[in-house]
Each structure stands twice: as structure tokens, then as C-alpha cells.
Design a protein around this nucleic acid. Sequence first.
RNA 1: GCGGGCGUGGUGGAACUGGUAGACGCGCUGGACUCAAAAUCCAGUUCCGGCAACGGAGUGUCGGUUCGAUUCCGACCGCCCGCACCA
Length: 855
Amino acid sequence: MSETEPTRYDFAAAEPYWQAQWQQQACFRVEDHPRDGRPKYYVLEMFPYPSGKIHMGHVRNYTLGDVVARYKRARGFAVLHPMGWDAFGLPAENAARENNADPAEWTYQNIANMRAELQRMGFSLDWSREFATCDVEYYGQQQKLFLDFWREGLVERRAANVNWDPVDMTVLANEQVIDGRGWRSGALVEKKKLSQWFFKITDYAQDLLDGLKRLDRWPERVKLMQENWIGHSQGAEVVFPLAEPVEGMASVAVYTTRPDTLFGMSFLAVAAEHPLAQAVAKTNPQAAAFIAECASQGTSEAVIEAAEKRGFDTGLRVVNPITGQSHPVWIANFVLMEYGTGAIFGCPCADQRDLDFARKYHLPVPVVVSPAKDSAPEVKDQALDGEGYIVNSGFLSGLTTKEANTRIIAELERRGAGRAVQNWRLRDWGISRQRYWGCPIPVIHCEACGPQPVPEDQLPVVLPRDVSFDRPGNPLDHHPSWRHVNCPACGRPALRETDTFDTFVDSSWYFARFTAPRAPTPTDRAAADFWLPVDQYVGGIEHAILHLLYSRFFTRAMRKTGHVAIDEPFAGLFTQGMVTHESYRDAQGRWLYPDEVIRTAEGAMHKKTGAPVTVGRVEKMSKSKRNTVDPGAIVARFGADTARWFVLSDNPPERDVEWTETGVQGAYRFLQRLARIGEEVARTGPGEASDAPAARKLRQMTHRAIEAVTQALEGFAFNLAVARLYELLNAIAAAGEAPELAAARFEAMESLVRLAAPLVPHLAEHLFTRLRPQAGLLANQDWPVADPALLAVDEVTVAVQVNGKLRGTIRLPPGADANHAIPLAKEAVAGAIGGQSIVKQIYVPDRIVNFVVKP
RNA sequence: GCGGGCGUGGUGGAACUGGUAGACGCGCUGGACUCAAAAUCCAGUUCCGGCAACGGAGUGUCGGUUCGAUUCCGACCGCCCGCACCA
């Protein structure tokens, strides 16, 4: 190394050193019941599944949360920032089946690896609170919660048509079926009837909907997605008497949002699973065949073929309670048993599906809606499903569709033929899973007494370790002794429930457990009341519905059972974008890892063979596309701060970020430059204060940066904070070594270091100890405060326009009045105005002067 | 189909309630230092014309409101996300 070469900042030594210092001084530790009077702030990132390695998504997620945590700590908050593991789930079982691994061992080993990786990133976490959901101390408390919920009537056991994932061999909740496929396996989901445990989330449908309005620090689109998912609709139930009863059924109830179109009825249609359809099938083989066909089509084909409307005329007739007319009853494949009453009345003129159906089977299409008053338009292939006026409808004719809606419901109620009802798309949450690696459902089934809760003194129900995976299905079913117990009610031999909870249950309350992770009850009320709700939750948009909705339900259920005092768990939510990368394929179409590829000016080639490589789309990092970058390798090569700086710097955190080699290099260069200049400033020392204009200018720059970075961090605009920090460093570098700038330069550098601390904490500590050797850890320091006197500006640049086009600028004291500004402005653009006359002049102080001129 | 979002240089993106479009980074170009390279430093970089001063155009397209529109309104085009035979 030559003498002129600046000393390089050795992150590989510095980062572990500062991590050890933070650890020793317990900088990030908080009490369950703090007494120091600081206001609380709870920052939480969605906890990871322990797959074995952290990925770039984790790095981004936890860096974002860590910036908030460190910033809020510096602002004087007692910050709760915990970490744990969403540790139950299928991959551990798959490892057991494929590699003969013990799921528990496999999981805890993965946790150990990932913990080390996270710690190497320097996140300001309170590791004393760590737990995994597969710890018996955690899932045992979860069993208590379940039993409390049961006692409160929030749990139900019923036989239900469930979504069965044939690959994972388990039940899926509606929320876990995406386009007819399992959210995890991607297998086509089948319908199956099973006895299942349910959480009655629908009891809270209205409340979960209403609660969204109060979540003012949630992204609009997440709230919207939840709103759509809950799917509230206002309508009416109408009862249609059957002309002749079938198997004791005298009528069919129908749900509709358009009772105003009742006069336009053409037919009635029921779902294949509807009791009436089933009854008809008993005596009518053709109907039975049609129903069987619908069932075999199932979820899968229906999705793919999208909507060939088919039906079967049962020959039955119903009477319209309003018009008295008789209509045929059909079984139709587009009517869903799960929604409404499983039956509809068909009004083809006002509903596209009904119209398609009517055209196909040559059913009448009476026109009862018109976009204009007193006209009856023709209906061909396009239904009139908008608002408008009712026509050809007796006492409803002439009313708007809205008025008619109110009117007809009143009439239905008067005649006892129907009533106003509301409907929800949200279904109860099925939580039974036929899996081993999950929290056992604490229930004992007795032939005589039915399902019984496991008594308090027999909790927790511990998952047995001595299981074998040599057969398909749930190993708990094959365990020789575990399931055999006595009934807690009658004492006779009984069987344990062998299903375990959906792992979404585990993640529905972990945020509450973090407030007192060692408490002998699910929560410690004092701790929970102090720390909850989570002030800032950070995670991926992919959890916008499932996890967040379940957590919101759980919080309400926990309030009802006395475990918490709140109903909304997450006061603030931030959903970050994905980490993406280019993908590469060789000539044979095989995916290549980024570090197997060299980018050249012309394209890309294989590092070893030099063979040409096709550069594909930039997309989410995924193992299958091999477009992943291992955080461990990046940290080893560039350091944790570089990785942190990079994921924060390029674009807004809510958007996707593309990981690029050049971007990382840039981040690394900046940090080295900061280190070098920081060391220089530290060597020069604080210097003598000076009131030279250049010094004042630099000080103003510093204090504006303090103000701007603070604003940026408050608003999650970390990319803007980064830009302001770049500017400040450039200003420091430009100030050079002039003695009269020494003090201002020192102040600027110290401020820069403090402002950068939440983003790149290790380097910031390193430079802070150089600048302020006596001051202790930067992690314990307060946030810098901008001096208002230095934020004030002495002069502003005001744009001067002629006819809205920029023609010059003038310098003015802030808030200058028009008498002062206008003449100066006129002078500045005299050439552009020339001989033209000024028709109008606009002056917005500190902003703009605009002259409107005419020749 | 329904609901929502987004279109700005070569590129990621700035631009507070309408008021100098392109902050900051990356990349690129030229230069300095070096035997050379890396690193570093300096200068330039929306496009068109011009040596320059300067002029013209410009925020997906078309139109509107306004003294003034990336920002507000309408239509269209493109991309992304969520939901979906939901009655």
C-alpha cells in the first residue's frame, strides 16, 4: 500500500465489533413493563419462515423495519423491535419424508443458521424476546387461546365441503385457494366433505369491514383488497312457493341484490348441490347425471373453461310472489351453493349471466329496465345491468331502480314473501389440517360425550417426537399411544384430535406474544396493554388478505376473551416491494445463477465456458429461475452496511427494487468515500467557529439536510433520505480544507453520521467514535435537531414567465411584496416582452411572476 | 367482467397544497493522477438547431379547465395488482 492511498474502512472487522458492543450494552433491549416514562413504539416486521437461509426479501424487509426502529429510538421512544420464527409448516415434514430428518431438529437447525445471518446484518433487535411458534411454550399458549375462543362460541365443528389439496394431502381455507389451486403446492384443489374446526370469523364480518375505516396508516389498496374479500352486499331474500311441494319442501328462497327487477323474472335456478336439486335427482336419472357432471367439473375445469353456462330443466314450477306468474325451475352450473341461498331468480334483461342462459335455452326475456324514463329498449346480447328506470313492472313502473328497490322490499315484507338481508363473501375460517408439524388442536373425542376440551391441567398437548413418516397421511394417526386418552368428562377411553392448526393461526397472534414472551398465560395484560398495538408493521403485499385479516380477527377474539384491550393489531402498515433480478438462460434453456454470468457491452456470456447467455425478464428472485443473490455472499464481500444502503437507496420501498451488481458497487463506493472523508474530518477536529459566508452556507446546508432527512424517514421515503445524505457529503467534500470552514465541516460530518446511523449503523458508529471519542455509542445518542435560524433563507429565486413560459429569474428576499418584485421582474424579461403590452401580471410570493402580454 | 394503481432522460427515480421538470444515484463521454490498471478527483450528460449567447420541443396519446398542468377533469392506448359465474 502506498502512502498516498487512503486507509480503507475495514467493514469485515468493524461490523462484528459494533454488533458485539450493542449486544454488550443491551442497546435494543426493552422491558415488558418499562418504568422509565419514555413513550412506546412497537416496530415489527413479518417474521420469517425458517427455510434455512435468509434471502434478499428478508434483507429488504428487516432493513426497512430497522431504519424505523433505530430512528424512533433516537427520537426518544422505548422501541420494541422483536424477532421470531414462523416455524410450523410443511417443508419440515417434506424434509422428514425426503431426507429422513427430524422436523424439529431440521427446523431448529435452520433457525440457528438464519439467526446468525440476521445478526450479521446488524438489525437492532431485542433477541431476548425471540421465540419460534414450534416452541411448546408458544403453541401451548395458543391451545389455551383456542379453548377460550371455544368457550366464547367463536369455534365450531361441522362437516363441510372443504378444499382438498391432493398434493399436500390437506385441507385449505378459501383464502388459500388461488385460481382453483393450492397456494403452496399449486395443485388443482378438489372438493371433499370432512368434519372440521372453524373459527367464526364471519361473526366479525361487519366489524372487520368497519374497522378498515379507522386504519388511516394502512395502504389504501390493502384496505380495498380486504373490503373486497369480506365482500359485503345489500339485497333481499325472496321466497318463491313451489307449485307442488317436493320432499316436504314447499318453497325456494333466493338471494338477490336486484329485487327491483322481480317483474322481469324468466326462470328460477338452483345450484347442483341445492337440496331441491338433490331431491329431484332421486327420481330423475337425467337430473342426477347433470348434477354429477357439474360436480366432476369441480373447481378446476370451471376455472379453465370459464363459463359455459349450462342447465337442466327440472320440470318444477315456482310462483312469483309479486306477479303471481309461474316460472320453470332449472339446475344451473353457474349458481354457487356457497353464496347467498344457492338459488337465484333469473332476470335476463338486467343480468348478463341470466341473459346468456336465457338465450341458450330459449327462455323469455321480459324488459323491465330502461336507461331512459318512459322507454322500453330492446335487449339483444347486452344486459341492462346499470341503474336506470323500471318499466313494464306494475306499481314499480316509472321509479328509478333505486327507488324501486326500497319500494319492492317494503312490499315483500308486507306480503311476508321476503325481507331485506345483507350477504357476505367472507366464509368461516377452517383451521383443521391433517398434518404432523403443527400445533395440536387440544380436543379429545369421546364416542359418548362428543368432542371435549383438553382440561387446563393437561395442557399443553405436546407434539410427540417419536413419529415415523414411512406412510402417507398424518403420522399422528399412526402413533401407537399418543392419541389414546381417557375422556375428561366420562373417563372412558377416547381419542385425541390428530389434526393440527393451520399455520396461519400461529402467525395471527405472535405480535401480542412478543410483548411478554415468557408469560405463563398467552399474554401479560399489563405488557400487552402497554405495547400494543404494533405502531409500524412492515411486510410483503402478498399477506394483504390472509395473514392481516386473520390477525385482525384474532385480535378481536382475544379482546372478547380478555387477552388484549385492542381490536386492531397494526396501527400502521407498510407493504414493501419485491427484490427482483435479471434472469439468465443458456442455449439449452437452462436457468443460470447471476454469478455464473458475465455481462458485457454486447450482452452476456457464461463465466467459464464463454457460451452466449440470454438475458431474460427482470422478475422476483426465485429459486426456480435461479435469479437469486445470496445475502450471505454479498455481506461477506461488501459488508452488511452496503447491502442495507443498496436496498434503501435506489427506489421507493413500496416498489420493486432490482438488484444489480453496479448498484451494489455504487453503494460500496459511497460508503468507502464517506469513511474516507469522515476520517479526514475527524483528524482535522472540531476547529474554530467562523462566521464566514461559506461557513454559514455549509451550516445551512447541514441543517436543511437534518430537516429533510427527518421528514423523509417519517414518511418512509428512504430513497429521498439517501439522496439528501449524498448531497450533504458532496457539500462537505466541496468545502475542502479551508480553515474557516473547519467547524462547519465538522458539524456537517457529525450530522451526516447521525442521520445515516439508522441506515448504515456500523459505519456510523465507526465514524462517530472518531469524531466524538468520549461520547459512547451512537446507538444511544439522540436524533439531531435542525436550528430554525439556519433553516431560514435570506434570498429566494423567483421564476419570471411571459405568457407562461420561463424567460428569466430574479433574486428576492423571502416574502417580498409585489411593489418590489414586479419592477425587477419586468426588467429581467424586458427583452422577451419587447414592445408588447402587459394585459395581466400574476405574482406568487417566493415562487413566480407571470406577465400576460399581447402584441 | 368488476375494483384499484401506474406511464417522466440511456437507466432507478425527484418535483410539498397547480408555480423554474429531470434533485440524487447508476451508466456514459472527456480530462487529471499512473509505466499501466484499479481507486480517486474534475467537467459534461433530456432531445433538436447553434462555436456560443440563445431559440424550439418535451412528463403514454388526444382534448379540456387555468395567467400557468407531471400535478386537476374527460376520452383513449399500454403495463401491473386484487377479486370474479357473488345473483
